[in-house]
Simulated scan of single mutants.
Amino acid sequence: MKKIINRPDTVVVDSLRGLAAAHADLLRVIADPAQVLRADAPVRGKVALVSGGGSGHEPLHGGFVGPGMLDAACPGAVFTSPTPDQVHAAVTAVHGGAGVLLLVKNYTGDVLNFETAAELAAADGIDVRTVVIDDDVAVRDSTFTAGRRGVGGTVLLEKIVGAAAESGADLDTCERVARAVVAEVRSMGMALTAPTVPHVGSPSVELGADEMEVGIGIHGEPGRARTPLVGAEGIVTGLLDPILEDLPFAEGDDVLLFTNSMGGTPLLELYLAHGIAEDLLAARGIEVRRRLVGPYITSLEMQGVSLTLLRMTDELLEYWDAPVRTAALRWGC
């Protein structure tokens, strides 16, 4: 295992220390229990957004804390859910009097621990709502979850609902917008290599030089099938077709296309894949109104790509275009 770390058992703490140093104008980090908080939190009268999950998916979630997105992120150990006390502490820290919305990826540990934290916060008199995202079309059940996994759509969810909250929308509105995104977003990914968790020291799965895993999860868990490696056109088609069929998307739809690196894929290949996806969508009469390309929800150093499609409405477009200022995503500021 070759990694730029000191010790596997301190990798998350050490990384959070660097995040805090690099972006002190945007966020502050609490060490115990680990939380990444918006620098000006709590913002009085604003709905607070809290998310989180296992580390190793950076910039998700800590990189999306700041004006126009999250008020707090709870980083667990690598590929491990944050604990209820982390989430409860974050909710308490950022609650500004207008309620708190928890945005949770559909993994069993995340769902259970955020649910427990919500109950603790409710006992404190805080109005807490929870929205679970399950946008992965690859598999119904997997290693970490019952039901579909929450993957790339999480980034779009946090941006859009973050804009709604920043605009002054109340908790009911923020919850409605979040559920609208969940209903209209679908994703699927693939991998050429597997991630290596620092405290494990070896890849999560073994892929041959001429193999790829189609439908892989963001923790390196298995997908739909392990198949012979094909060219970029075949890879993109193999990801896009199941996404389009699932909702289904149709001619005349307006969409946001998010082409994501799983951590080890260079932009040269990522833009190549994105261009193919744009052409395939245009051939079906689906208009790409907005785009996002880059490593925004990763799986350590996994080499692979995921595609996410969100069917857009005028309201969602407005919130997507709204200003955002975080460590990893910013425009309009």
Score class of each variant (00 low, 15 high):
1 M>I: 09
9 D>G: 00
11 V>K: 00
11 V>E: 01
12 V>Y: 01
16 L>A: 05
20 A>K: 11
22 A>I: 11
24 A>T: 12
26 L>M: 10
28 R>N: 09
28 R>I: 12
31 A>G: 07
31 A>M: 05
41 A>M: 10
45 G>L: 01
47 V>G: 07
50 V>C: 12
51 S>A: 15
55 S>I: 00
57 H>D: 10
60 L>A: 14
63 G>E: 05
65 V>I: 10
66 G>L: 03
67 P>A: 14
72 A>S: 13
73 A>F: 07
76 G>K: 01
78 V>D: 02
82 P>L: 01
83 T>W: 02
84 P>R: 00
91 V>K: 05
92 T>Q: 15
92 T>Y: 05
94 V>A: 09
100 V>Y: 11
102 L>V: 11
104 V>D: 04
104 V>W: 04
106 N>M: 02
107 Y>K: 01
108 T>S: 13
110 D>C: 04
117 A>E: 03
118 A>P: 14
126 I>D: 10
129 R>Y: 06
131 V>Y: 08
132 V>P: 00
135 D>P: 02
136 D>V: 02
136 D>R: 11
138 A>R: 08
139 V>I: 12
142 S>Q: 10
144 F>D: 12
150 G>N: 06
150 G>V: 04
156 L>E: 07
160 I>G: 11
163 A>M: 07
166 E>N: 10
166 E>T: 14
167 S>R: 12
169 A>T: 06
174 C>F: 13
175 E>A: 14
178 A>H: 10
183 A>P: 04
184 E>H: 15
185 V>L: 06
186 R>Y: 03
190 M>T: 03
190 M>P: 03
190 M>E: 02
194 A>R: 00
196 T>L: 01
196 T>F: 03
198 P>F: 07
199 H>Q: 11
206 E>I: 15
207 L>E: 02
210 D>A: 14
212 M>I: 15
214 V>R: 00
215 G>L: 10
217 G>F: 02
218 I>E: 13
218 I>N: 12
223 G>M: 04
224 R>S: 13
225 A>I: 13
228 P>G: 14
233 E>K: 11
236 V>L: 13
237 T>S: 15
238 G>Y: 08
240 L>H: 02
240 L>T: 02
243 I>P: 08
249 F>Y: 14
255 V>G: 05
257 L>I: 02
261 S>F: 01
263 G>I: 02
264 G>H: 08
265 T>C: 13
266 P>M: 08
268 L>K: 11
269 E>A: 13
273 A>S: 14
275 G>A: 04
275 G>F: 00
282 A>M: 04
286 I>H: 05
288 V>Q: 05
289 R>G: 11
291 R>L: 12
294 G>I: 01
294 G>C: 08
296 Y>K: 04
298 T>K: 07
305 V>F: 00
308 T>K: 01
308 T>V: 10
308 T>P: 09
309 L>I: 09
311 R>I: 02
312 M>F: 12
312 M>T: 13
313 T>L: 06
318 E>K: 06
321 D>T: 00
324 V>I: 14
326 T>E: 03
333 C>N: 15
333 C>G: 15
